[in-house]
Design a protein around this nucleic acid. Structure first.
Lengths: 198, 198, 198, 198
DNA sequence: CATGAATGAGCCTTCATTCAT
DNA sequence: TATGAATGAAGGCTCATTCAT
């Protein structure tokens, strides 16, 4: 039975902290999230946190990077496959549903964005993440148009912005918990509309 | 030179506090807004706040009501006039621009929504405001379709949700201050698309 | 229908304020009593209070004087009558019962005493009241002994102190509301014991 | 030179806080005592307090328990010894003198009682302490009677109440600092009287 | 690495008091 | 005389962060 190497143990701790932080930030916002709650729900003590991260903002950045990488990774993998338009739309629908359904990641991103609005230093670091996401969304939309056999409209760049705004806006609406919400359907309606409109 | 009556003086104070609170909430969120900052920026002392409001949440509600009333009032006034579709679209564009431009009101609403997500008691009170807004947006969209001579599509109710989500999402994006943002144009594009698509 | 003179109106207001203050001080202590609660429960506004009293301590003193005068007046009146020992004991029993039963006056005195312990300036004024009470208690005890046909013991002066201490101590115990408490009986037992012991 | 273990360090801190709190509560009452003053006089910062206690009431309870345990422990130890009546009376005299002399503990108990009168939740917890004390006083009185070779009178249970009321009442009187007060003597007089009276 | 005791800035709220009406 | 708007000191409590163990 081999022990974990220092590095592995460290990265396991960090992953647990990240998971807990994602939840806490999503639920209570950056300012409202308490480090004690994060470490406690991760099964550690206060000290473990500061052994792994310099500050609260530090773990915000780490969560943003780690989860964003996974998200983008997934998209890229999917887009690499030459599926037909129906499959693509279905995949996107599921993707949205997951995104809006678990809510945590969506809300976390919103809170990160809010923190960026309030904090110049963080805003600079956040910008990098934003560009990656925008690029990914653009890629996805582009794939959509090409597989639908439709030419990209002149305002194509803005469509990506619109799409992301929609997802963000729906994220905020969803989460009243009561009704399941048909937000994914609404997003699909939006996509189909702009595709046909072209 | 007549002095102000008690009542007038009180309502002027409250208006000043509301203005300051709107800004502070929009900028720092409900949890992050400091009452001291609100009163200071309104030109009062800490105590004046509590002479007028029972708590921080109390003024949140008051701001929500007061501004929402004005917003809806304005919409209703406009919709009462039998303008042609171009005028309506222009008005909406300006309306959006103002809404997104001053940013404060948009961000304030988002922060109120976030607070509602975190606070059951407030959520109950917030629901009332939400219904009014949704109704107003629906009215506006309805007017749009009728003046464009276009029949309302079957998913009409969801369009209002989409539209509000878009506004919210764009509100969050805008405000990076640097570029003027053509968010209003994007909203108009969305409106025209769904109108034509019908 | 004649209007009230300035002075009468003023003294009515003060009496209402005194009644309310007595209760509030008794229930919440000097520090814990809120002037707003006092004025409100007296049916006035904050301002009325300061039109009649210079400060919170000011009304404390006024209540102390006014009620103490009544109390002592009553005692003196009774002691002037040449009743037999049984009647005197019965009267004292009733007196104690009333004192401990309504609790307010007893607790008020305790709170006044506590305030004196914490505040040198007030302590000086309080001393005057204390002397009067001690003198009255001594008179009452003296009457008791003489009417019982018993000579006052050498430590007579200390008995008054003991008696007052007992009343104060029982005042603090009583008031758990649940059981009626036989504190008056206990006081009578004490009196009879020292009488027989002599 | 070994440093203190975590646990020791923690309990030393708490003991210091308890000592400071006892004084502060005794002097200013529960409401009037400031946590800042307590921690400062204990040599700590505000935060140290909340690292050790959940609230102001929390330390009130802790002080009550800790000191009460010591007090009762002492009594029990003494009562276990089969001394003659003179020794017992002398011990009690000293005990009273110490209790009334340091004043703090006596006043603290009074303030705790007052807080219980004003606070239902605390009252419930306080009741437990009260029962223990009453039981201890009863034991002590019982020992007194048995060693004096005197049968317990029918109202024996009430005598314990009277005794405690006396101590409380005298506690409040004493502390005017000026004169040394012969309160202990008065208590002894009371004890002897009821013993002889039997 | 991890623990948890301690720090201290910051925040919401209460309340005695003042003063213009 | 009474009203109530405004002041500002004070206090309970939270929490990011530091550091000795």
């Amino acid at each position: 039975m081999t022990r974990l190497s220092r590095e592995d143990s460290r990265s396991i701790t960090q992953e647990k902290l990240r998971t807990a932080a994602l939840q806490e930030f999503a639920r209570w916002g950056f300012g409202g999230a308490a480090i004690d709650k994060i470490t406690e729900s991760a099964g550690f003590s206060r000290g473990a946190f500061y052994a792994n991260y310099k500050s609260k903002e530090d773990i915000l950045i780490d969560v943003l990077k780690a989860y964003n990488n996974r998200e983008i990774q997934e998209w890229r993998q999917f887009l690499a496959m030459p599926e037909d338009i129906e499959t693509v739309l279905n995949y996107m629908r599921e993707s949205f549903a997951r995104y809006l359904g678990q809510a945590d990641w969506g809300m976390f991103v919103i809170e990160a964005q809010l923190h960026a609005k309030r904090n110049k230093d963080f805003a600079a670091k956040y910008r990098g993440y934003l560009n990656e996401v925008n690029e990914s969304v653009r890629l996805m939309l582009s794939a959509l148009y090409s597989r639908a056999g439709v030419a990209e409209p002149p305002n194509f760049g803005e469509l990506a912005v619109l799409l992301r705004a929609l997802v963000v806006g729906l994220s905020l609406d969803v989460g009243d918990d009561s009704d399941p919400s048909n937000a994914p359907d609404q997003l699909m309606y939006f996509l189909k509309t702009i595709l046909h409109h072209a």
